[in-house]
């Protein structure tokens, strides 16, 4: 049995955001972190490993330095990593990304008892689309916004968050679950994990390794092939700033004059 976790390295958008002259984000100049929801997905897989002894495989698509993130996740307890990396994959939208990741997961192999975990969404794009799109490509049942997971034979009992409550669902394995922060608290790297993480394998899947997979259409990946394209990107105009006031008393006077309070 395996737990396959899809993770993404993202720019730390809470820190200082570097913008290039053309208005796009300068990713190279920014610190990177593992996407927060993905850490909950990794933790869910590691808890499954604690319970069942299953193998945990972490998969990411990104440039070669993303290997460092995979090593960190191995130090947390994952058994091996897969780095999906190739110039041909760059600039992919969510549809294209999900094809590539689905092909990578397919190559790793999804067995009858396996679970694929994803974070709900990445903080750089906030789409929450890649998880369900991978599930569709792999013909796996999906549950998104998962806040609780219990393995029950060949079924998984999960809670799925709604705006005003939750649904409790029973889903057959293999399946794909997208995880949110309410699910668990990610563990830290262990000292032995840090020592061992460089001895564990990380496979690299490049374009040639995946291009013949039936899930990949070579003309709908990458920047050119992606179904969606950026038409225009822009910053909001510099508006005439509002009125700066000196004190609370002055503000309340103005609000009162305008009958706002």
């Amino acid at each position: 049995m395996k737990a396959i976790v899809c993770v993404k390295q993202v720019p730390d958008t809470q820190g200082k955001v570097a913008v290039k002259p053309d208005g796009t984000m300068d990713r190279a100049a920014m610190a990177t972190i593992t996407n927060p929801d993905d850490l909950n997905a990794v933790e869910a897989a590691l808890q499954l490993k604690d319970e069942t002894g299953c193998e945990v495989v972490v998969v990411t698509m990104g440039p070669p330095p993303a290997e460092g993130m995979l090593r960190e996740l191995i130090a947390r307890g994952a058994d091996r990593g897969v780095l999906v990396s190739g110039r041909e994959f760059g600039g992919s939208d969510t549809f294209a990304t999900s094809q590539i990741l689905a092909a990578a997961v397919n190559k790793i192999g999804v067995g009858p008892e396996d679970i694929v975990f994803c974070g709900r969404q990445a903080i750089d794009g906030d789409t929450a689309q890649v998880g369900p799109q991978i599930a569709e490509k792999l013909h796996l049942p999906q549950v998104t916004y998962v806040t609780d997971i219990k393995k029950d034979g060949n079924n998984v009992i999960v809670k799925r968050q709604l705006e005003d409550g939750y649904m409790e669902l029973k889903v057959q394995t293999p399946c794909l679950l997208t995880c949110i922060k309410e699910l668990n608290t990610p563990r830290y790297m262990s000292v032995s994990g840090i020592f061992e993480c460089f001895d564990k394998p990380i496979d690299v899947f490049d374009y040639n390794a995946l291009k013949d997979d039936p899930l990949i259409e070579t003309d709908t990946i990458g920047l050119k092939g992606s179904p969606t394209n950026v038409y225009k990107s822009f910053a909001p105009p510099v508006k005439g700033a509002g009125m700066m006031v000196e004190s609370a008393a002055q503000l309340v006077g103005m609000l009162n004059d305008k009958h706002l309070i």
Binding site: D126, L162, T228
Partner: peptide, 23 residues
């Protein structure tokens, strides 16, 4: 883009072989 719509949209877009723009 409710919790249900964000589950349904991407599943359908992938099946229909088309793009989807979130939020």
């Amino acid at each position: 883009a409710t919790n249900l719509g964000r589950d349904l949209g991407p599943r359908c877009a992938a099946r229909l072989h088309t793009g989807l723009t979130a939020d």
